[in-house]
Design a protein around this nucleic acid. Sequence first.
DNA 1: AATGAATGAGAATTCATTCAT
DNA 2: AATGAATGAATTCTCATTCAT
Lengths: 212, 212, 212, 212
Amino acid sequence: MLYFCAVMPKQKVDEQTIIIEALKLFRKKSYFNTSMSDIADACGLQKGSLYHYFPSKEDLMKRVIKTVHEYFKNNVFHHAYDKNLPPHKRLENLFRAAEKVFLDEEKGNLLGNMGVETALMAPEFNSLVQRFFLDFFHAIKTIYQDKYGDKIANELAERSVAEIEGSLMFSRVFNDHSYLKNTTKRILKRIEEKPAEAAGANGASRATKAKH
Amino acid sequence: MLYFCAVMPKQKVDEQTIIIEALKLFRKKSYFNTSMSDIADACGLQKGSLYHYFPSKEDLMKRVIKTVHEYFKNNVFHHAYDKNLPPHKRLENLFRAAEKVFLDEEKGNLLGNMGVETALMAPEFNSLVQRFFLDFFHAIKTIYQDKYGDKIANELAERSVAEIEGSLMFSRVFNDHSYLKNTTKRILKRIEEKPAEAAGANGASRATKAKH
Amino acid sequence: MLYFCAVMPKQKVDEQTIIIEALKLFRKKSYFNTSMSDIADACGLQKGSLYHYFPSKEDLMKRVIKTVHEYFKNNVFHHAYDKNLPPHKRLENLFRAAEKVFLDEEKGNLLGNMGVETALMAPEFNSLVQRFFLDFFHAIKTIYQDKYGDKIANELAERSVAEIEGSLMFSRVFNDHSYLKNTTKRILKRIEEKPAEAAGANGASRATKAKH
Amino acid sequence: MLYFCAVMPKQKVDEQTIIIEALKLFRKKSYFNTSMSDIADACGLQKGSLYHYFPSKEDLMKRVIKTVHEYFKNNVFHHAYDKNLPPHKRLENLFRAAEKVFLDEEKGNLLGNMGVETALMAPEFNSLVQRFFLDFFHAIKTIYQDKYGDKIANELAERSVAEIEGSLMFSRVFNDHSYLKNTTKRILKRIEEKPAEAAGANGASRATKAKH
DNA sequence: AATGAATGAGAATTCATTCAT
DNA sequence: AATGAATGAATTCTCATTCAT
């Protein structure tokens, strides 16, 4: 990987490198199955050296989650707020970007969003994951709001994100991309159609309402 | 649970007790955060004694997953096959039973989707979790098949289970039952309506198709 | 093994059965690598039941060693005392019988004499193994005594048994019967030749002298 | 062993120390009866710390065996290749050095044939022990080759090493140095005499032939 | 005699973390 | 900043042994 640079950059190990390597490992092997040693190895460091950058494994994980969150904000969710495009186009762009990350298409691995699983297993990361999903909800809701009223948009967003997360899980459990891809396709098709479907929505859930 | 004889038999711990105690702990603290010691304590045993019943922690977990699966078959999925009731009623019964388990409504004694998280983190349990979901799909699909053709039923089932699993995840991440409850309500409402909505379905995913 | 009896004997598990099964396992896997569970399995018993016959694993091993010793007395060493045959014939018979046991020729496994290794690793069996070797020495010495004087016979015996044990060890380490077989052939050849070779013997060792 | 600087460096335990301590314990109590805890105690370390140096107990044992082998090469076997001395002198030097190690003459600090016993009980060490013996054979054979032809030298070497190992075993079982000492004396005497004795040798065994 | 549940001590190993250099 | 030795607590698992039935 390094050998291909014409001029070898100093390649000092920095926080970002560690976060990225940790992210890769957490995604591949999960938080509990990844040791600080694994991360150090991946960075070309000694175990002890990691503690110069992060006071603990838990803290490192939090930084990883925040980094992922930030990445989604800048590269996925932002498509929702591009007011120059029509809703269905914005949704399409957002989904396309999300799939790239979720399905790790470049490398062909099925990675999924480690944060979710981790949140369910380790309560200390719960609030960070909540924040991630609230932003996810908000982005999708914003897109729907142009076509539907606030209440319906809220509910549609909740439903769409649930479908996406559920089918992402299936894609992972069955090691089959098509679950997620079919789901995004289906959701896109819905937005292009008449708003009739959303009628009769029952109210959105508490957490989602609370924030937006 | 323990029947009284004239002479109280010496309270032997049996496999089922251990499985139930392990399940509770795995649900509460996750597989990785639960030690064999924890389980032994919960059963009033020494940790070595667990190995009298299960050759390894992994094996115990597999038994737990199978037990949950069996429980769902007998107490949840079976509603789908009750040919005396109309589809929407069968779906309602199934959802009601599922919610009871998923949301731990009556005192945390049974189940949850701990298997899912674990499958995502520990590949050794993947196939058991796959089997669980295939049965889940099949049950829901059977209900839809009375109203829709095979292809659409398939897709609707996939979608419904995804919505349920996604919203269950939100219910847990946000510690708010209404995500799952709203979702089941919404899905029930759909089945009571005209079949028009399902039009334009794109094909079901590989794994689901393969089996049913 | 049992299947070949025309009338299946009651075949109650008895001490002898356990000793034989334990011997087989100790030979194959060594004392330390054989658990009471392994032995119980081989006997078709529960672990706990072994303790009806033997108070401890150590005691069982002692019985095994004694049984082997007894077996050698009756089936191997006794050839040395068959006064009807000439020395070289007696030696040949003895070696032939010993090879059968050491090399487990019937089953083609290289088993060797577990007692020796065990004696070296677990001092509690030392004296039993000593007794075995003293009998071995004595048998060989008796054969030599007809051709040579006591002193030389003593030394030749010590030397022959050492050669045998050493080459038996090589046969096991290199998994090659020929080490032991070449050695017995060579020793037999020596006894058929002139007694000149034994000249200049230096005295036998203490233990050997002490006993005989 | 530890060189004194102006400032005494903090006495770090190093690999060699651990290997030596492990060797001592393996010799005294055997591989199976020595726990990593015992070794750690002997080194003044926590047992976890051993894994900083060796990935497993098995690996540590392999290093121990290799160290012993190396020691024999440098301190025992090398006498065989000292072309300035006559064969019998070389053999004498070799034996003298071997006895020192085998019989632990100076204070139990080094070696013994613990490897042999272990090889017989734990197949994972077999090949290392084979290599040790092949070197032993080769050294002795080299000495004999100056007086006898290749074939006879081969067989004499095999026989001598067998005698030595056998009598070493007796020395240990009877706790009496004289078994080994008499054997080396006797073998030395043979080489000083006429080569007539070796006549009629039957071929050497497979493993020995294969290598040399 | 036999069972099999239970024990309890101890084994190997892992790992997040600390800290002197 | 980085090392790497060291820790110590925890973890999974093994096993000889006991004992009520």
